[in-house]
Write a protein that binds this DNA or RNA. Structure first.
Lengths: 159, 159
DNA sequence: AACAGTTAGTTCCAATTAGGAACTGATAGT
DNA sequence: ACTATCAGTTCCTAATTGGAACTAACTGTT
């Protein structure tokens, strides 16, 4: 199976990764959340080559994560803005950044701290169940298979 | 800049992605959370080529996300198990899967539902501040720069 | 003893993708 | 006329991927 066909899988994670799972793409989104919107700004901040950046921005726009908005005519130029769909990826980025803070920082400590405005403390990101409001660990989750794919998704002999 | 040098950046997200940001790696971890541990099981479930799988498992083990544990001698064979560091990635996977459920499912609906055992309802994953317990949106976060990299990380003219 | 089966890889080659640098096109400012 | 801005595109080489076959170290079966 080719990576570019991964969106054919009946798996929400695989389909998500078909849009945002390529190299560089999550770093593009990081910069989007920092307010970066223009091609050259992404390129200079990331150091990614221009045609890879061009490809990633196109995929993100086609996938609905970013929208291409004209910010001037003559010459026509566009910038890239997060859509609601894109902003919904914030928890993914926050948890990944926190995971790096925890396990991969050097002596000088994490480069950025995310402060929760409402409580004034550094964010300790947790996974919360929106229904009951409690924090959730992996063991707290039970998987239910959609009957349509019954028996094809979960491993048979493991748990 | 080459993608393989991305772990040199003073950015926790970039360093996280250096370990888990390659194509296929998050799908390997998805299967780890489903209880898959052996090379051939990963290979058959994912459809990834064997040498790419070999490379990804090696990087995950070197990065501390998985540990290679012998499950038999003669011939010596190993399986791959999530470490605590690896289990800490669960929120990332849960949010990515939920994002796919929300935006990328087809007519038959999401293939799997994650049920929160404690409350019995399908998980509505949210980003929670562990300090105050409230749900967090992107706008609730203020970034503070580590003085050690002052002025080099955040964009100058955006927000 | 010979043979197939299991399992975690490695090796080989063609095809795709990435990295680096230069180039294009439309326009504004000097 | 010349330089600068800015979002790309084009070109070439180098690295990575996809696919298939192969290896090594056994176990179990005829």
């Amino acid at each position: 199976m080719r990576w570019q066909d991964i969106d054919q899988q009946p798996c929400s994670l695989a389909r998500s990764l078909a849009i945002i799972g390529d190299n560089w793409t999550l770093l593009v989104l990081r910069d989007c959340f920092l307010g970066v919107r223009r091609f050259d700004d992404f390129q200079q901040r990331l150091g990614v080559t221009r045609h890879v950046l061009s490809d990633r921005l196109r995929k993100l726009a086609e996938g609905g994560v970013l929208e291409k908005v004209a910010y001037q005519e003559r010459p026509l130029r566009h910038e890239y803005r997060l859509t609601t769909m894109g902003r919904d990826l914030y928890p993914v980025i926050a948890h990944l950044a926190q995971w790096g803070d925890k396990y991969l920082a050097d002596e000088a400590g994490p480069p950025l701290t995310r402060v929760h405005r409402q409580c004034g403390e550094p964010l300790e990101a947790k996974l919360q169940c929106g229904h009951c409001g409690e924090s959730v660990e992996p063991r707290d989750i039970r998987l239910e298979e959609n009957p349509h794919w019954a028996g094809t998704l979960l491993p048979t002999q493991a748990g």
